[in-house]
C-alpha cells in the first residue's frame, strides 16, 4: 500500500544494560517517549517494519563491507551480545522473505543493495526493537547503512537509499513502517564514552525536523568526526528516514544521557 509510519530513535547497549544508572528523570523521559512511539507504530498497523540501522560488525566487516544491505530472510536471531549483559533476552524475530525480495527488487533500480537471507541483530536493532515490540509480534525487514568502517556511505547516497525505500514501499500492497536508529554525537567504546555534544545534536535535529535536505547533507565526514565523534556517522540512518517520509518531524525526546553514551532521541515524521 505505502509507507505508513516513520520514526527515528537512538540506540546503544547502555539504554538497556545500564538503564537504571541514568537518573530516574532521564530514564523515564526517554522510556516514555519510546512508549509513545511504540503506540503510534502499533496504531499505524504495519504489515512489516523496516529498521534502518548502523550495525557494529555483527554481520558486515571490512573483509566485504556493503554500503547498503537489506534483509529478506525467514527470521533473524539476536541479540548477538550476551543477553545478560545487554539485559535483552535472545529472540527469533520474524522476517518477510517475499516482501523483502519485492522491496529490494524495486530499490535496486536506483541503489546498489546487498540482499541478505542471514542477519543477526546486534544492539543497534535489538535495543529499539525490544522497546518498540517487547512481545516479539512485529515482522521486521532489517536494513543497514555502513556508518562504521570507512570509506563510509556518502550522505547523499543515504538520502537516495531513503528515497528508494519510499518508492519501494509505495509500490507494494503491504503497509510498511520505517524506523531508523542511530546515536547522534557519541564516542562509543572509547575512553570518551559518555561524551555528548548536545548543541550539535540539537542543531542536527532542527535540520531533521524541518526536513531540510541541503542542510542535512551539508556535513563533511571530517566535521562530523570532530563535532559528533565516530558515533556521529550514524546520522546517515536519520537522513534516509527523512528522504523516505518527505514530511515534517515531531520531536518526542532529545535529552543527553551520558551513562547511555548517547542522547536519548525519539522523533517521528509525517508521511508527505
Amino acid at each position: 500500500m505505502s509507507l505508513v509510519f516513520t520514526g527515528v530513535c537512538s540506540h546503544g547497549p547502555g539504554i538497556t544494560a545500564r538503564r537504571d544508572l541514568a537518573t530516574p528523570e532521564q530514564r523515564d523521559t526517554f522510556y516514555a517517549a519510546m512508549g509513545t512511539m511504540r503506540a503510534a507504530l502499533r496504531e499505524a498497523r504495519p504489515d512489516a517494519v523496516m529498521i534502518v540501522a548502523a550495525e557494529h560488525f555483527a554481520n558486515f566487516f571490512m573483509d566485504k563491507m556493503p554500503p547498503f544491505a537489506v534483509g529478506m530472510g525467514e527470521s533473524y536471531p539476536g541479540p548477538i551480545e550476551d543477553p545478560d549483559w545487554l539485559a535483552i533476552p535472545r529472540r527469533e524475530t520474524r522476517g518477510a522473505p517475499d516482501l523483502g525480495r519485492r522491496l529490494i527488487t524495486e530499490m535496486l533500480e536506483t541503489v546498489d543493495v546487498t540482499y541478505c537471507e542471514e542477519w543477526q541483530f546486534d544492539h543497534g536493532i535489538i535495543v529499539p526493537l525490544h522497546l518498540l515490540d517487547p512481545d516479539n509480534e512485529l515482522t521486521v525487514i532489517p536494513a543497514n547503512i555502513n556508518c562504521q568502517g570507512p570509506p563510509l556511505t556518502p550522505l547523499h547516497r543515504a538520502w537516495a537509499f531513503g528515497e528508494a525505500i519510499r518508492r519501494a514501499a509505495d509500490a507494494v500492497p503491504e503497509r510498511i513502517a520505517l524506523i531508523a536508529t542511530g546515536g547522534l554525537s557519541h564516542w562509543p567504546a572509547t575512553p570518551d564514552s559518555g561524551k555528548i555534544n548536545f548543541a550539535w545534536d540539537t542543531d542536527f535535529m532542527e535540520r531533521w525536523l524541518v526536513n531540510d535536505r541541503n542542510r542535512l547533507l551539508a556535513y563533511t565526514n571530517a566535521e562530523t568526526y570532530r563535532d559528533g565523534g565516530q558515533g556521529g556517522f550514524e546520522i546517515r540512518t536519520y537522513i534516509a528516514a527523512a528522504a523516505a517520509a518527505r514530511g515534517q518531524g515531531t520531536l518526542h525526546c532529545l535529552l543527553p544521557i551520558p551513562v547511555y553514551a548517547t542522547s536519548g532521541i525519539v522523533a517521528t515524521m509525517e508521511i508527505a
Partner: peptide
C-alpha cells in the same frame, strides 16, 4: 582508525 581519544587521561566523562 576512527576511535581516537579526545578527552584527557584523567577525565572520566560519565564518571566511569
Amino acid at each position: 582508525g576512527i576511535y581516537a581519544m579526545t578527552t584527557g587521561a584523567d577525565e572520566k566523562v560519565a564518571g566511569l
